[in-house]
Amino acid sequence: MAKYAFLFPGQGAQAPGMMKDVCEAYPECKKVLDDVSAIWGKDVAKLMWEADAAELSRSDNSQMAITAASIATVKALEAKGITPDAVMGFSLGEFPALYAAGVLSFEDVIKVVAKRGAIMQKVCEQIAQENEGHAPGMTAVIGLGPDQVKEIAGKCENVYAANMNSPVQTVLSGTFDGLTQAEALCKEAGARRALRLAVAGPFHSPLMQRAADEFEKAIADVTFNDPKIALFSNVTGKQATSGAEIKKNAVLHLIQSVLWTDEEKVLLDMIKSSGEEWKLYEPGPGKVLSGLWAKCGLEIGELSCSEINTAEALNNL
Score class of each variant (00 low, 15 high):
9 P>W: 07
10 G>V: 01
11 Q>G: 01
15 A>R: 14
16 P>H: 10
18 M>H: 11
19 M>I: 04
19 M>Y: 05
24 E>P: 00
24 E>R: 13
31 K>T: 14
33 L>G: 09
33 L>T: 06
41 G>T: 04
47 L>C: 13
48 M>E: 12
48 M>S: 15
50 E>G: 09
54 A>S: 14
59 S>R: 04
60 D>H: 15
60 D>V: 11
64 M>R: 06
67 T>N: 12
71 I>K: 11
77 L>P: 01
79 A>R: 13
81 G>S: 01
84 P>V: 08
92 L>W: 01
97 A>R: 02
97 A>Q: 05
97 A>N: 06
97 A>E: 04
103 V>Y: 07
104 L>H: 07
109 V>T: 13
109 V>F: 04
110 I>K: 04
113 V>M: 03
113 V>P: 01
118 A>M: 05
118 A>H: 07
123 V>A: 11
124 C>W: 03
124 C>E: 02
125 E>W: 00
127 I>W: 02
132 E>C: 10
134 H>S: 14
135 A>T: 08
136 P>Q: 08
139 T>G: 00
141 V>G: 06
142 I>T: 11
146 P>K: 09
150 K>W: 00
152 I>S: 11
157 E>R: 14
157 E>Q: 14
162 A>K: 04
165 N>W: 03
171 V>H: 07
172 L>G: 01
173 S>M: 01
177 D>I: 09
177 D>F: 11
180 T>G: 15
181 Q>D: 11
191 A>M: 10
192 R>E: 14
192 R>D: 13
195 L>D: 03
196 R>P: 10
200 A>I: 03
204 H>V: 04
205 S>Y: 05
209 Q>E: 14
212 A>K: 13
212 A>G: 09
215 F>E: 00
222 V>L: 06
229 I>H: 06
233 S>M: 04
233 S>F: 06
237 G>C: 05
237 G>E: 05
240 A>L: 04
248 K>I: 01
260 W>I: 09
261 T>I: 12
265 K>S: 13
266 V>T: 14
269 D>Q: 13
275 G>K: 12
276 E>C: 07
278 W>H: 10
287 K>Y: 05
290 S>M: 07
297 G>Y: 08
297 G>M: 07
297 G>D: 09
298 L>Y: 15
300 I>C: 12
304 S>W: 00
310 T>L: 11
310 T>A: 12
312 E>P: 04
314 L>W: 09
316 N>L: 13
